[in-house]
Design a protein around this nucleic acid. Structure first.
Length: 405
RNA sequence: GGAGGAGUUCCCGAGUGGCCAAAGGGGGCAGACUGUAAAUCUGUUGCUUUUCAGCUUCGAUGGUCCGAAUCCAUCCUCCUCCA
């Protein structure tokens, strides 16, 4: 089975400009393709992860990836799919974020000799001359046509600044530049990027009379149509400092039944045959097997085998009974903060960040949501003796260890 | 540039002098039910406090008043119509 067929079967491909041509090119490892990343935060998150996986798959098949960091376009902000204007980032922040991206990506992509390159569009966008751009590129875009695109339609209601309106032109220009400088003949991106990407292929055709291709990846949506990889606390990050491997693992362990198989297909490198087999055979509670595989596999990809093993082990210990584990998240409590070797339950909850305030902690206790070493705590004034360590359980599935230090 | 309108808690959105820490909905958290799922039902949802109560919060800053989200002034931001 060719790469393209595998991608199709996994449901990764959303839209393509020329199926036959693209399929032929990537199966043969002839594509030089790029994916753009806007440096809006100092870590990649799950939303970027699919793109990284795709790059990896393609690279393994011999294609050459170009990672385009949007140091220049990041200064504008993509209006697609956003209801409000994004706040502008300072050049310093953008630079910092770019650096962080680079570091994280090298885990997935082999940047070895001629294998892949990383470029920053600030390198050419920043020095552009307004008049030149208008003459050279501006003439190729029809405002009438742009305004008919879905991504702008929504914003026509709420207002769209000229700044944001230009995002598409910048992105098209990127493709045009990459095509000329590196022979980049294909662009990949999220499905919400389709219009922007087509802008690039058209610009190349108009300016150079050559064909370039674009392909979009299915957006990772859950069964309710919401973007995945977001929690109330924010995005699920790939940076272990921002989202601990344990939390990362648990996020995937807890996806809804309806989403497990889809996530496996889209995100993991588990052979498609195996996934389809699971899809056929696993029913109801058995899906937990698949969830565990999903969580393990992704944690392994992002944080390495060692961490993944730890997370799996921790989960087994915690949820399989026992309720103790060396690898559950923990907080050290300095001995100096103990009174007679004990600490008030509310203080403990706040210290371990299980509750943001004492008031909320009190509520949790009163509603029966807190256990310490498997003993339910019902008195907000309870003192917890901390000889060595205790395991605090909040709700059904949040475990945390407090260790005397 | 001119004329109007709007800014309320995580989000949407009520509230036009005291009964307002502020209706309702969404979201979140917890409980029941379960499979670490979904759906449903219940409770809860500014901070401190056992209680009483205190403190901070309705775009910003000043003011009127015993008392202001609510009235006045100035400023900031956004929207609509006209140019």
């Amino acid at each position: 089975m060719g790469l393209y067929e595998d991608l199709t079967r996994r449901g990764l491909i959303a839209q393509v400009t020329d199926e036959a041509e693209i399929s032929k090119m990537i199966n043969a490892g002839k594509a030089t393709f790029y994916i753009g990343f806007d440096p809006t935060a100092d870590s990649l998150h799950v939303g970027h992860f699919m793109a990284l996986c795709l790059m990896k798959r393609l690279q393994m098949a011999g294609n050459k990836p170009i990672v385009l960091i949007g140091g220049g376009t990041g200064m504008i902000g993509d209006p697609s799919g956003k209801s409000d204007m994004r706040k502008m980032l300072t050049p310093e922040t953008i630079q910092h974020n770019c650096d962080c991206f680079k570091k994280q990506m090298s885990r997935f992509i082999d940047f070895g000799e001629d294998k892949a390159i990383m470029v920053n569009n600030a390198d050419w966008l920043m020095s552009l001359n307004y008049i030149d751009v208008l003459r050279e590129v501006g003439a190729c875009f029809s405002v009438n046509k742009m305004l008919t695109f879905e991504c702008y339609k929504q914003r026509m209601e709420r207002g769209l600044t000229f700044l944001e309106f230009n995002y598409m032109i910048m992105q098209s220009y990127d493709f045009y530049m990459l095509f000329q400088k590196y022979g980049c003949n294909m662009q990949f991106g999220g499905d919400d990027q389709w219009a922007n990407m087509l802008g690039g292929t058209e610009l190349i055709r108009k300016k150079l009379g050559k064909d370039a291709h674009a392909m979009t990846i299915t957006l990772l949506l859950n069964s309710e149509g919401k973007k995945m990889g977001k929690t109330e606390k924010g995005a699920v990050w790939l940076d272990p400092e921002k989202t601990s491997p344990y939390d990362f693992f648990q996020y995937w362990r807890n996806v809804g039944d309806a989403d497990v198989i889809k996530c496996m297909k889209l995100l993991t490198f588990i052979p498609i045959e195996d996934i389809e087999e699971m899809e056929r055979t696993l029913q109801g509670a058995e899906l937990n097997i698949a969830k565990e595989k999903l969580a393990y596999s992704l944690t392994e990809l992002v944080h390495g085998k060692e961490e993944a093993d730890k997370c799996l082990e921790a989960a087994k210990n915690i949820f399989g009974g026992g309720g103790n584990s060396a690898d559950m998240p923990s907080t050290e409590i300095p001995a100096a903060e103990l009174e007679d070797g004990a600490i008030g339950i509310l203080d403990l909850l706040v210290k371990t960040k299980l509750a943001p305030s004492k008031g909320e902690g009190r509520r949790l206790v009163q509603q029966g949501g807190i256990s310490v070493d498997d003993v339910k705590i019902t008195d907000p004034n309870a003192k917890i003796a901390l000889d060595n360590e205790v395991v605090i359980k909040k709700g059904k599935k949040v475990f945390h260890k407090a260790v005397k230090a």
